[in-house]
Structures are given as C-alpha cells and as structure tokens.
Amino acid sequence: MLAFHYDHLTLALPPGHRFPQSKYQMLRERVERDPGRMRLRVADAATAAELALVHTPDYIDAVLHGTLSAAAQREIGFPWAPGLPRRSLCSVGATIAAAGAALEEGVAASLAGGTHHAYADKGSGFCVFNDVAVAARLMQARWHREHPDRPGLRVLVVDLDVHQGNGTARIFQDDDSVFTLSIHGEKNFPFRKEASDLDVGLPDGCGDEVYIEALETALAEVWRRVADRPPGLAFYLAGADPHEGDRLGRLKLSANGLLRRDRIVLDALFERRIPVALSMAGGYGEDLGVTVEVQRRTLDAAADTWARWQAARTV
C-alpha cells in the first residue's frame, strides 16, 4: 500500500506548544520497521491553483506570503514562519497523492493530514488548508476531465477524529456531490459546530460498545442516503484521539475498540468497492508512543484491505 509523508518539514513552535509534531516522524519510523507492508513516498507540495479549488485567493496569499493577521495565527494555533507554507502545501499534497493512488489501487494513506478545521477563508485548530476538501475537489475535476460522458464523482468523507470536521462540513454544505459524516465528542472542540450531512455527537467518557453501535448505525444511514448515487471515492479521517489516553479527546475508546472501528469502516467500503484515502488526523496522547501504535494498527488494517483489493482484481 502506498503511504505518503513529509515529516522532514517541521514547524517553528515555541517550547511547550501543544501540537505534537514529533509523532509524524515517529509513525514513519515505526512503519519502516515493518518492510513490505507499505511503499513510503515523500509527498509533493500542492499548488496554489489546486488550493484555489477550495480556498479563497486572499487567504492563500496570506498564508504563502506571511501576511496572516495575529488573530488569524492565533485561530490556527501556529505562528507564521517561513517553513509554514511549505509544510502546509505538502500536507495537502500527501492527501492528493493518497486519493489518486486509492483510485488506482483501492486504498492509500497519508501519514498525517485530516486538517478538517480549515475553512475556505481561514484556518483553525492546527489546520491551515483543508487537505481532504482540496483533494476531493481535485479528484472530481480529474474525473470529469477523464470521463466527460459519465456522471460526476461522488465523494464520501468519513470523519472519525474526536473533533467535529467543521471546516469540511461548511465547505461542502448544500453540495450533494460530497457526503460528510462526522462522529465526534459533542462537548469537545469546536464548540460551535457546523452541519455535516450526518453528525453524531457522543458524550464525554463514551467507551467502545456505545461508540461501535453509533458507528454502525451511522454507516447504515449513510448507505441508505447515498443508495441512489453511490460514492466513487471515500476519505477516512482515522483520528487516534478518541483513545482513552488522549490528552484532548475526552472519550474512552481502547486500542482494540479503535481497531474494530477501523475494520468496520474499511470492510464496509471494500464490500461496496469504494476506494479510500486515509488520513491520520488527530492524536494527542499523554504518551505519543501509544498514539503512534494506534495509528500503526490503523495502517495495518488499511494494508490488509489493500491486499483484498489486489486479490479481488486477480480473480
């Protein structure tokens, strides 16, 4: 399975900053210890033209040229520095590459991404540009160009980060070519939610069984509502932050519960032959090694599904 990364690019953050950027290198190094499961590739940067499929010209220019206001930087949670634009562009580029590879091979991943709090005209919550939104729009544009006589590409976003995907929901509101599902902590950030096509807010302290039941119920509703026009591509934001050891999550899922979650999503997509691009999204464990292990198991489940896609093609 192809997996894209860019952890050689780092942010200039003040000491004690809450964003755990070291986890990206830790995850890539963990994946490298199991050769043969994944083909690792360094992500290319997205272009300004690709960003413009979603983001406003003024916002793109402010990020790329360092003219974000102090208030805008505070909302994002990162101070602007020369390294910020390149890293942000590669974050989007990794998800674009994963989406393209998924359409070719069934499953692919970004070892980061899932920047779902970014709106068209602003960033928020450690998210500068919305990687999934840009990749979705670009894949739809490519599909239209390559298949002008076929129906447009419908996209499904399965967002299981513990925080609601408010930016993604807002970007795709009233757009029936993209169906957005968000299962999140109801009382967690963002405190003002946007309307996804389907939102499931869970109480603090929610454990495995309640979560899995909510996920299965939500997916059944998704399949009912997209039956007339099934998705041709899915994005799965497989956040590790619902884990019981997460500093910011406030839910109580076990590592095994999160693996069950991943397999349910991946199995459902495979059964319907919907290609999927994964993003690792959030994860803020008290012990980052635990967060990385949760993400490594997600990637293993994805690699298993990729193998099923390849086997099905040889039959």
Rank of each mutant, 00 (worst) to 15 (best):
L40K: 10
C90Y: 04
E32F: 02
G257D: 02
E105W: 05
L258N: 02
D197A: 12
D246C: 08
L288K: 03
A169K: 00
R263Q: 13
H8S: 14
L27H: 06
L160D: 04
D159L: 04
Y24H: 10
F189Y: 15
P79Q: 09
H144T: 15
M1A: 13
G123N: 07
D199T: 07
V210Y: 05
A312V: 06
R39S: 15
D199H: 01
P57G: 13
R272F: 13
W309C: 09
A62C: 05
R28I: 13
A255Q: 13
H116K: 08
D121L: 04
A99Y: 06
D44C: 08
L202A: 13
G123Q: 05
R142K: 12
Q295D: 05
F129N: 01
A195N: 06
A97H: 03
V158E: 01
S279T: 15
V210D: 11
R30D: 13
F270Q: 07
A136V: 08
G257T: 09
L237M: 14
T10S: 13
D197C: 11
A118Q: 03
D300K: 03
Q73R: 05
A97K: 03
V107I: 15
D287S: 13
E50Y: 09
E194W: 00
P231V: 11
S91V: 14
D7C: 10
A112R: 07
R18W: 01
G36N: 10
R28M: 12
A218S: 14
V107E: 00
D287C: 11
G83K: 01
G167D: 06
P242V: 12
D161W: 01
R18K: 13
T180A: 06
R313E: 11
L2H: 09
D61A: 15
A81M: 04
